[in-house]
Amino acid sequence: MGTTAGRYRVMRLSRRFEETMHDQFGDGQVPGPLHLSIGQEAVAVGGCAGLRTSDAVISTHRGHHHCLAKGARPDRMMAELLGRTAGYSGGRGGSMHISIPDIGLIGTNGIVGAGLPIATGCAYGFQAQARDDVAVCFFGEGATGTGAFYEAINIAALWKLPLVFVCENNQIVELTPQEVHVAGELWRRGESHGMPGVRVDGNDVDAVADAVGAAVVRARAGDGPTLVEAVTYRWFGHYAGDRAAWRVEEEVQQWRERDPLIRTRAALPAEQADAIDEGIEELIGSALAFAQQSPVAGPEAIFPNHYASAS
């Protein structure tokens, strides 16, 4: 994802993945909650641009874009969301429980803030094994309200862990606006710990890639963690079905006009962009077909994978 075309392609994939799943949700085909990241794609794609497979990404309840940017297969993700046996968790987990350690995706997560301790653990694991891999922890601004966030930034700074904190500030926490949740400036939260902080335009994929990329290089070199605040906007409600009726329509419109996909697409020759879009439509079509052809997970699917001996 070092090129504009590569970055646009993954953002487009994420956008079309979620639009397709949103449609499926509307048709009653998604047997679980669906948290859409539409509008926030540049944070995930820019954030993962400088990563390799052995690096770890820790995601959130709103994490389809992180999964796809880290290399998850859209067909198996769709199968998971549709409750099919070919899904990453056999169709039992759904959107908030996709975890693929083989590609360094240490999970989306149903508990806000819970990824921060795990990311700290991944970074400690790399450090203790003298690996030069890094952990990138995505979390929303809502997660900075948890104690786990402060525990994590303290230990990460204290131990100079190879960890990049990416605060994906989409300006709405669940069902309430940010002013209900956040005091002060998020990007400065690490300051008193001696941790560099930076705020970037989270709708500019190259700006995110540059900021997180520099932090990744720093972490890989053993120079410790960085906090990156990427300011973006959530187009939809907290979950599919939440109309977020309290929001001012003009605000939503303003942010839609700052669509990260339009901005990145504009930097590409039109023909190339069209070709990418066509390729993604084919990919989404075949992924959906794959998911729909997979059997619906039945009652027997709930039993495996609780313990090693019975896996």
Partner: peptide, 13 residues
């Protein structure tokens, strides 16, 4: 919380 997280994340990698 992070103490146990060190174990979860560490074991995951």
């Amino acid at each position: 919380q992070v103490l146990v997280g060190l174990g979860v994340g560490g074991a995951a990698v």
